[in-house]
Design a protein around this nucleic acid. Structure first.
Lengths: 156, 156
DNA sequence: CCTGAAACTTAAATCCG
DNA sequence: CGGATTTAAGTTTCAGG
């Protein structure tokens, strides 16, 4: 069985810091939290192994690399059985411009977030890539006017 | 004036690697890309300073820390003038359970992503926190059944 | 489970070709 | 930019409380 692994306040404090800056050293973390390096070291290792920290990532600003347009595209499938769902999911995973895909409640089955350069690139994606999938019933595109908040912090 | 800073293929390759693993050393990156450490070092520094790499973050798995429920909440404001918009945005930024807020086209003004433990916690948020804002016209909550894809990769 | 320090390992940063 | 050097730093371990 899986280890449940309950986090105490010290673990949470460590996570708070690492969420904001993964490059912080154990010494710095220890200093800020009034701990010594040993428990910091062990707790981080424990959380890495438990999959609580699932990745250390460099976060790239989309607008600075020519991917400044974000579109939310809502999708309903024709066939809802497992087989067609799996195929759909597989194709979604293969499109790099789709940065997120959520299976949702409500009118639509899925929400995908698409990160592209501009409207031309979105049309290209919409027509030639998404449009090639053969299990789509209907879709709706919602355009992001501006990003008010975008954080990776789930511990606070 | 801002530096435009055009990325060439080598920069992109570096970003690809760092997006997946920010802990990679310059040596490892250099080795994988058949470069020496010097250009890797300089290119990373350049991209950090340009704000292209805007953060190094530890990514925490919400489901493993008791934040397994994601809700998309769509919001329309009563007053659309600047003053009320700013106040709304300020309050959004102060709610830590809101991990994302997008100003969007279409029927609603904003989409917020809320990360909570369970339905009880969402109700608590919805009633006592969101409900306390005085500029809301109407809202709609869409629940995330499952996360199919969630990536931070905008360079590929 | 933490403290503190030591030992070890490794990466960052520089410099010269 | 390649390559090696050097210096600095971080990680990891261990005894002891």
């Amino acid at each position: 069985m899986e280890t449940p692994l309950v986090l105490d306040e010290k673990d949470m404090n460590i996570l708070k810091l690492l969420q904001q800056d993964a490059k912080m050293t154990m010494r710095d973390i220890a200093a800020q939290l009034n701990m010594s390096t040993t428990p910091v070291y062990e707790r981080i290792r424990k959380m890495e192994q438990a999959g609580i920290i699932k990745q250390y990532a460099a976060i790239v600003d989309p607008s600075k690399i020519g991917k400044g347009l974000t579109v939310l595209c809502y999708i309903t499938l024709k066939e809802h059985n497992k087989k067609y769902g799996k195929k759909f999911i597989q194709e979604i995973l293969n499109f790099p411009e789709i940065t997120e895909c959520l299976n949702i409640s409500g009118e639509f089955d899925f929400m995908i977030k698409v990160q592209v350069k501009d409207m031309d690139e979105y049309r290209e994606f919409y027509v030639n890539k998404l449009g090639e999938l053969d299990n789509l019933s209907h879709t709706q595109s919602i355009f992001v006017i501006s990003v008010i908040k975008a954080t990776h912090q789930v511990v606070y």
